[in-house]
């Protein structure tokens, strides 16, 4: 007579774990999405709004790898248990920042518990995408250190405006046009757009497979940072111009309304263009292959 233990099909354990994860993190994820869509939580939360496309993308990638995942041997790495325990403790604090951070740690711990390091390596890109989309207070901690970037952007934007013939003075991070002041604040310094651009760059690099070539990756990410900074300089120059010349409507359009969204979309489109150029013109590696006489 078969014992009831063997009658329990193995896949129901997996589904039970998945269901519990939904119970634990479902409302939290809905809270994140609500905050991103309605901008209702905080500015720090907004920094991670790329999660709206990043999290489904990560889930999709993990789903496409499920055959390979099932073929991996079932091994438990002890670190996985440690990570699951740490994530549970963080979740128990019931403080939002710690609960948020417990999600990537829990997922990484589960990968290690079920399939050991091979499983972790298989799901690495999904875990990275989830971890980088998890709202934390990291932008707040970074803010004091980006003062040099703000000053640089203010200086170059001021320089551009003087080239166009506008009377502008630059003090530290303030642009004075016609006695109107525009402050290059940390968010206006494009820190959020820089994070989003780098995140989208990671998604694009994985999707097109250029992550195998270090040369292409380096150029792509360097180019992303450059595009983000240049785009932000232009945006701040335009904002100072609109504010100084009294075009309040145009200023509000670019600063708060759909003008800002258009600017972000253009910047992300230019990333795609950059990627196409790199794939077309940049070789995978710079190493030369020697042609020995016998191989002619």
């Amino acid at each position: 007579m078969p014992s009831s233990r063997h009658a329990l099909p193995r896949f129901s354990l997996n589904w039970a774990i998945a269901a519990l994860l939904m119970v634990l993190y479902g409302p939290l994820l809905l809270h994140w999405v609500d905050g991103w869509l309605n901008k209702s939580i905080s500015i720090q939360h907004e920094y991670f709004s790329h999660g709206l496309i990043g999290l489904p993308f990560a889930a999709y990638i993990a789903w496409t790898k499920r055959q390979t995942w099932q073929q991996l041997p079932n091994q438990c790495h002890p670190l996985g248990i440690g990570l699951v325990v740490v994530a549970s403790l963080m979740y128990l604090t019931r403080l939002t920042d710690w609960m948020n951070l417990s999600l990537p740690i829990m997922l990484a711990g589960l990968c290690l518990c079920l399939k050991s390091t091979a499983g972790l390596r298989l799901q690495a890109i999904s875990l990275i995408l989830v971890a980088l989309a998890t709202p934390t207070q990291l932008p707040y901690l970074i803010e004091p250190y980006i003062l040099p970037l703000q000053r640089f952007i203010a200086a170059v934007a001021g320089f551009l405006l003087t080239q166009v013939g506008v009377n502008v003075t630059v003090e530290q991070i303030y642009l004075y046009v016609n006695d109107q002041t525009v402050e290059v604040a940390p968010h206006c310094a494009g820190l959020k757009m820089l994070f989003t651009s780098l995140y989208v760059a990671i998604m694009l690099a994985y999707w097109t497979g250029i992550y195998t070539s270090r040369l292409r990756m380096g150029l792509f990410f360097g180019g992303t940072v450059l595009i983000s900074v240049v785009g932000n300089i232009i945006r701040n120059a335009l904002l100072s111009y609109f504010h100084g010349m009294g075009h309040t409507g145009a200023f509000v359009w670019l600063h708060e309304s759909w003008g800002g969204d258009l600017y972000s979309a253009l910047m992300l489109l230019s990333l795609i263009v950059l990627l196409r150029l790199i794939r077309q013109w940049i070789p995978e590696t710079l190493s030369l292959t020697m042609q020995t006489p016998s191989s002619v």
């Binding site: 193995r10 354990l13 997996n14 039970a16 774990i17 519990l20 994860l21 634990l24 079932n74 438990c76 248990i81 699951v84 325990v85 549970s88 589960l110 518990c113 079920l114």
Partner: peptide, 12 residues
């Protein structure tokens, strides 16, 4: 594998 999954289930 089953005991690992049961353990995880218990913790969660």
């Amino acid at each position: 594998d089953r005991w690992v999954k049961r353990g995880i289930l218990l913790v969660l």
